[in-house]
Design a protein around this nucleic acid. Structure first.
Ligand SMILES: [Mn+2]
Ligand SMILES: [Mn+2]
Ligand SMILES: [Zn+2]
Ligand SMILES: [Zn+2]
Lengths: 154, 154
DNA sequence: ATCCCGATTTTGATAAAGTCCAAATCTGGA
DNA sequence: TCCAGATTTGGACTTTATCAAAATCGGGAT
């Protein structure tokens, strides 16, 4: 994210402290949840309501400034890497999420064999597995309740 | 699902009316939600608690007898077509869900370019778009609130 | 520099989907 | 037929997110 302030202006969005703080938090914590982004934004602003975080995340997502991903068994996550049709690798145990470049190249990167007459606009791919850290920790596969994250490097 | 009763016994699960009813409902309503399955099961049983539907769906899923899919902005959906690594085509407007055979063939059908050291066990693919019916209805793309389903052929 | 309207933020209530818990009931082997 | 353990049930509870209305703020016009 080059310049958050001008990014907002380019999209005809009034510049507010809350929007700048959320944008900063998203940039610095890729794939963070709304709660994590709230913590990040508060570190900058001092205070911001939970509803404002959702308001901002929604308007930024609608404008295409950030991207929302919604893996199973996880609250939504956000990132500012948009427009490149990349995919994700998610740890079943701790939820660690990594970017994976598109499996085929173009966007949409995949075509369904039989599209059933649908007009497809996106092929979303999620690779599920165990991150190196959870493998070492000897986690078997999918714990009933996901383990508390064991702080990777972020 | 050949014989629900013997399927349960094969997995060392006591046979109960609730399990048979849920299994029947899942078989007859592919990609149905827990609520829809509850309606189906009640048509058979007369009565079954919401918690039992969840209990049954969870054990059946754990045993691999049925499969759970969790597309964004939708409650979980269930199907008895398991073990063939197929993917899904989901309508952004009405949620209609169709099966799509694996894009590449094997299972897992895709390999991430850079697996970041993860041990990948599944590549989940969801194609997002508009079903033929919603295209005809002139739905633009992603309505704020998904439209009420306009009853396709199920 | 000040005013003002519409957009944004805030607070608090509400919704949707699913889990937790303990009491009642049922299943299947003895 | 009996019984221990598994299952079912009703109700409270949790998590994630939205809704609604009042208070506040941003930025173009004066
Ligand atoms: Mn990403
Ligand atoms: Mn399917
Ligand atoms: Zn992990
Ligand atoms: Zn549709």
């Amino acid at each position: 994210m080059r310049d958050p302030e001008s990014t907002l202006r380019q999209h005809h969005l009034p510049v507010t402290a809350q929007r700048l703080a959320v944008l900063w938090a998203v940039s610095h914590h890729p794939h963070a949840t709304a709660d994590e982004i709230t913590v990040g934004a508060r570190a900058l602003l001092g205070t911001i309501s939970r509803q404002s975080v959702y308001n901002v995340l929604n308007v930024l997502t609608d404008k295409g400034i950030i991207r929302r991903i919604q893996p199973a068994d996880s609250p939504a996550r956000y990132e500012d890497r948009v427009g490149d049709n990349h995919h994700h690798l998610v740890c079943r145990a701790c939820g660690q999420t990594e970017d994976v470049c598109c499996a085929v190249g173009g966007a949409p990167c995949l075509e369904a064999h039989d599209d059933h007459g649908f007009k497809i606009d996106e092929a979303e791919v999620i690779y599920w597995g165990l991150c190196p850290s959870c493998q070492r920790a000897g986690v078997s596969a999918a714990p009933a309740r996901p383990l508390p994250p064991h702080h990777h490097h972020d």
